[in-house]
Nucleic acid binder design. Structure first.
Lengths: 145, 145
DNA sequence: GGCAATCAGGACCTTATTTGTCCTATTAAC
DNA sequence: GTTAATAGGACAAATAAGGTCCTGATTGCC
């Protein structure tokens, strides 16, 4: 169905929430604010922290805060952080495993333009675009619908 | 991992193959040509026929053929045919079921720009672009990488 | 008219992925 | 030292995808 994981959705919600909080907020606090179970939110934040999208402070009075403004975080970054590299087909995963029908496959390697087009589209949408429900820079609704 | 289903991959391979065959080809014939098990290829072809992307002829000497040239079939069409509508999050599926955290969700409905950007990107790549490993019309590699 | 080839449609089982939860260790404030 | 908080990983359950097979309908050929 070409959809992204639910965790990515949670990540966006958490980041937007963090931006609104303007400071350090704890995992349970964020969970309550966006209405998602705490353990799950904690998991997402840990991943985001590992990728450097949020900064964490441990210990009492600790919590998470954004490492940069929403406007400089792209949707592509979040997807990569949570779901891994954006590669629509296994052919381009570069994971060493070669598709067994490669020799006969008439489209071997041909998904690359599709992958790059998707990446490009996602890199041009920042989280602040989403927070404001606006269109990405340079695009008009007529070009996109 | 934001990937599309393997069946979509098979569909592309089958359609490109059908284009090369230039005429009617049977399901087993296509399966042999692209190196994918026959039952699975048959399943894909049935879906494609149902969506009008290929025309089928029943009975002896029957088979499948393209309904239009490759250049007028977009990647988006294939994905929609196999995987259903392109909607990255369940929020926008429009399936009547309302997300239970909708009221608190700070990004409710905000994925729309992302979805439209993805659709736009996929609609600008035709199967003939893939068959030739070329870039979609109007785009240069520098704009996409 | 009968036989063989071929698509149509759906049921079904198996496997892989994703979710969500929990447990233990570590860190820092008071 | 106690409490509040993150770090990291292990794990079971739920969901989705993939693949196979069976039965029925249609058409060409002998």
């Amino acid at each position: 169905m070409l959809k992204l994981s639910r965790l990515t959705d949670y990540a966006v919600a958490a980041l937007v929430r963090l931006s609104a909080a303007e400071g350090v907020e704890t995992s349970p606090g964020i969970a309550a604010a966006i209405g998602i179970p705490e353990p799950t939110v904690a998991k997402v934040l840990k991943i985001l922290a590992g990728q450097g999208l949020v900064l964490s402070t441990r210990g009492a009075r600790g919590g998470y805060r954004l490492s940069r403004p929403l406007s400089s975080i792209t949707v592509a970054e979040i997807i990569v952080a949570i779901d891994g590299p954006i590669a629509l087909t296994s052919c381009v995963e570069g994971s060493g495993g070669v598709c067994e029908s490669l020799l006969r496959c008439p489209v071997a390697g041909r998904w690359d333009p599709v992958n790059t087009a998707i990446r490009s589209a996602l890199q041009n949408i920042s989280l602040s675009d989403m927070a404001h429900a606006a269109l990405p820079r340079g695009l008009r609704m007529s070009e996109v619908a």
